[in-house]
Every structure is written in structure tokens, then in C-alpha cells.
Computed example of a mutant assay.
Amino acid sequence: MTSCAIVQPNSNHGTIENSPQFNDGKFQNSKALDTMSLKKIPEYIKRYLSEKRKDVAPIKPIPVQRISTEALKSLPADSITLFRLGHSSFLLKAENAFWLIDPVFSDRASPFSFIGPKRFHQPPISIEELPEIRGVIISHNHYDHLDKSAIKAMAKKVATFIVPLGIAADLEAWGIDSNKIIELDWWQSSTIAGLELTMTPAQHFSGRGLTDSNKTLWGSWVIKSSKQSVFYSGDSGYFDGFKRIGEKYGPFDLTIIETGAYDKDWPDVHMTPEQSLQAHIDVKGKRMLPAHNGTFDLAFHPWYEPLERITHLGKSASIDIITPIVGEPVAIAANISFLPWWQGLN
């Protein structure tokens, strides 16, 4: 079993060159993959232009429950409560402090404001309304997970950014003080304000432009408070790393597992709902929240298909799949029934 190094806040950043994942100037997965590359873009564009697609976006408004500052103040201090902000963005209260996971607030998951995947709904809380944030946890640097304008806008109210190796350079270029950034490699941990954060492997890739392919690392996250634990998969294809994570850190009270944007042309870097459920089982999760769906059009399947498939799979396997409305509070220790909010919107 791989050992877990501890990186304390305010320590030096992780070292890219010494990372076992870094070779020949790029980060690599545990096995070589035929990932989405620039040479494949023309065929993807051809598919988008020629392939007949069904239910690309909802016709009726997606329900959103506004998050008020009063509601945030009334949350319990001794247990984890989370809110889904959309796609793979979450607001958590844990150890009596607030945390963000992959916060994306922009209208488009794109380097451009005028083109690219556009939101189906607005976030349930604005950046201005956010409370003071103890830490922002980033899984990788794709535009639907690392939002430059949001990071810059919330910088003053965030104490710490916890990111994979290589991403600190981007944050510093955006004006974030280097003393506020902690970079981690796979299996490294940092304990901040009583919350233990461990970056664990994922099978994916990185890049924000034409020249930075796999120059930064990607990963999943283990989040442990004094009483509860959460696993966040980030973006990942299905791989045996989930079993290693479960053996080392499971069981988890809640898993947040990527369930969406899968396709036959990129099977190694995103999971089908069947694989997402298996990942939940592998990490020894008790309840599963399917993420990476319902906000952006990023694949060829109907926008609601991931939610339909995963809820049916969970029911067949007697696994509790929770599907909160955007902005609805989720107390991970409570037994709460969630409605199939996506039904009837097309």
C-alpha cells in the first residue's frame, strides 16, 4: 500500500519533479491511456454537427433552492452539511467552517464568455453572498472545475486553496498569494482547522489550452472530519485505484461520484453510471451523490440520462442514491428522501 505523506499548512508546495506521477515533462496516469487529445477535436466537432441528439438541455427551468446567509448561520457545527451548487461544485460546512469544492460560478465552462457549454441554471448563492471560506479544494484544472473568474472574485474571503501539483502557478498568476496555496501529490494529506484533506488518485487528464496538456496533476479527495468522512471522485475513468482508496480510507459516510459526460469516444477518463456505482462500492461508501451532471452540456447523452440511470441502478442494488435539488441542504448523517427533480423538465 502506498504510504501517505503529511503536508502541513504553510509548508512549501509539493515538488513536481519528484512526483512519481511526473515523467518526461508531463503527469501520467497509473497506466497509459488513449485520452482526449487535440488531434481528436475535428472528429468530435463532426459528431456535434452531424449526430442527431436528443434532449440536449432542459426545456423547463431546473429547480434551484436559494441558499440564504441565515440558513448557513443555523447549520450544526458538529456534523457535515453540504449544498450542491451545480455540476461538481459544492459548499460544505465541516468542523464549524465553510469549504468549497471545485467552485464554478461562470455562465460557461469555457475560456470564452461567448461560446462553450452554457449553464442550465444559476448558482443558488452568489460569490458575494458566500460566507468566509476556510478552504477551496480543487480536483483538476479543466474549465468546468477550475473557474478563473470565480477564484479571483472570491480570493479575499478564502483562507487556503488546496490544489493538485502544478496548479499553484495558475493561481499565483491570477493574483492569489502563494502563502495561501497548498499543493499536494497523490496520497499526500493536509489537516486544516480540524479537517483532514487527502488527495488520492484519479484516472483523467489536465489542460486549459493548446500547450499545457497534462502539465498539472488531477485527483480525487478524501475529506475527514472528527466524526464523518466524504469521498469526492473528481473526474475519473473507472480504475483499480478506487479499491485502493477504499482499503486505505473507507468506509465513507457519503461519496460524491462523477456520473455524467460519459461517451464511447472517451471511456478511459469518464465513467458510465454502472461504473460510477461500482466506484462507490469500491471505496466503501454508504450513500452516493451523483455529480458532474445537470448543469452543462458536455456529452452526447440526454442531459437527464445520468440521473435516471444511476437512480435505477442504485434501487436495484439497494444503495442509497441521493439527488438533492441545487441549493438543497444535505446533512450527511440524516436519512432524507430526495425527489427526482429532473423528471418532467423536457
Rank of each mutant, 00 (worst) to 15 (best):
M271I: 07
G246V: 06
E305Q: 14
I281D: 01
A202N: 12
D263V: 09
E258D: 07
T211Q: 13
T211I: 11
T259V: 09
A299I: 02
G194A: 05
R287N: 13
G194H: 10
D253C: 03
P302F: 00
G209D: 14
Q278N: 09
S190A: 11
G237Q: 04
S229F: 07
T272P: 02
I257F: 12
K243D: 14
F205K: 05
I182K: 10
P251S: 09
T191S: 00
D212L: 02
T255V: 15
A193P: 01
D185K: 03
T259F: 07
S225P: 01
D297G: 06
F300R: 10
W266N: 10
T216Q: 15
A279L: 08
W221K: 04
D282L: 06
G285E: 03
L195P: 01
S229W: 11
D185P: 08
S220G: 15
I281R: 12
G250D: 02
K248C: 10
K286R: 14
E247T: 13
W186P: 00
P273N: 09
S220V: 05
G237M: 03
H280W: 04
D268Y: 15
S233T: 10
W186F: 03
S276L: 05
N293I: 00
T272E: 09
K180M: 06
T191N: 00
H301T: 15
L217R: 08
G194Y: 10
I181V: 10
H280V: 03
L197S: 03
L289W: 07
I181F: 01
I223V: 12
T198A: 06
D253S: 07
S206H: 03
T255G: 11
K180S: 09
H292C: 04
W266V: 02
Q203M: 12
N293Q: 14
